[in-house]
């Protein structure tokens, strides 16, 4: 099992050591520890608001933990200065939930963006690289289009091409399947797996799409209320007796996670009926 608290080996590319984080008074992560091995594709799953995206933001150094350490390749992200942080990000690619393509740039300029910003390559070479990256996501021929002319699935694939433009060592996927039709979803899932295998990248995917993710990932962490509640390989997760995993996998309204918001008044009271008891 990958989860092993403080005694994780150096072959773990990412480590969370007793990490806590809060937005103001609202706690998001609560003393969480986990490890992600080099070259593996790992999913972090959990409901909305469970702190999954916060974990990606901690890895990319956009926010800092209030306690604990987030180690990337053995280095604590919170200890990095501005230049080191940008160096760390240069070796990392991130696919945002809705792609986050630059709306004022064409597809070609979007994919070329990180290359232009970080290298001194000639325009002809950048053009060739862009074609290769677009070809890898099956979108060669779309170079001249603007992001507004792309479908949701295509935009996500262009964003993926942009994220891998500099051949990152680490890929972060923030809800890559949200809002996609089944075909686009399958294509993106296949691409994520293929890129992970072909580039030898360590990949972390934050998602709540259980079934598609279990088909492609090497390992899964289930997160709820800022803590890991279950972890294992897809086979272990499928066989897991945990009621939490069961509820999440089959989308049941009743279980450890409550469907209804804990209201302070009863339904009868809210409807103005007399004698309403708190339910």
């Amino acid at each position: 099992m990958f989860l092993s608290g403080k005694s994780v080996s150096s072959d773990h590319f990412i480590e969370f050591r007793n990490v806590s984080f809060a937005y103001g008074e609202r706690p998001i992560l609560n003393n969480i520890s986990l490890a992600i091995p080099r070259g593996k594709l790992v999913a972090i799953m959990g409901g909305s608001g469970s702190g999954k995206t916060t974990m990606l933001r901690l890895i990319s150094g956009q926010i800092r933990p209030s306690a604990g350490q987030v180690l990337v390749d053995g280095r604590n992200v919170a200890d990095m200065n501005h230049a080191e942080l940008f160096e760390h990000r240069r070796r990392m690619g991130m696919l945002f939930q809705f792609g986050a393509l630059f709306t004022d740039l064409s597809v070609e300029d979007n994919v070329a963006f990180p290359i232009r910003e970080h290298t001194r390559l000639a325009d002809s070479m950048i053009h060739d690289l862009v074609i290769m990256k677009l070809s890898a996501v099956g979108l060669r021929g779309t170079q001249a289009l603007m992001p507004a002319e792309l479908s949701g699935g295509m935009a996500r694939r262009v964003a993926l091409a942009r994220a891998i433009a500099l051949d990152p060592q680490l890929m972060l996927y923030d809800e890559p399947f949200t809002g996609l039709d089944p075909i686009s979803l399958g294509v993106i899932a296949h691409l994520i797996k293929k890129l992970n295998d072909a580039l030898g990248t360590t990949s972390i995917m934050v998602t709540h799409d259980v079934h598609k993710s279990l088909d492609i990932v090497d390992y899964v962490y289930f997160v709820s209320n800022g803590a890991v509640v279950a972890a294992g390989t897809p086979a272990e997760i499928r066989a897991s007796p945990s009621p939490w995993v069961h509820q999440f996998m089959w989308g049941e309204a009743d279980g450890p996670v409550h469907f209804a918001y804990p209201a302070s008044t009863s339904l009868q009271q809210d409807l103005g009926l007399k004698g309403g008891q708190h339910d």
Binding site: S60, Q62, F86, E87, R89, R90, M92, M94, F96, Q97, F98, A100, L101, F102, T103, F113, P114, E117, H118, A159
Partner: peptide, 18 residues
């Protein structure tokens, strides 16, 4: 503002571009 709302500024920052 819209670049911020659609995470374009975040994406840029994550690509190590200020």
């Amino acid at each position: 503002g819209l670049m911020k709302a659609t995470e374009q500024l975040d994406a840029m920052s994550v690509m190590a571009v200020n």
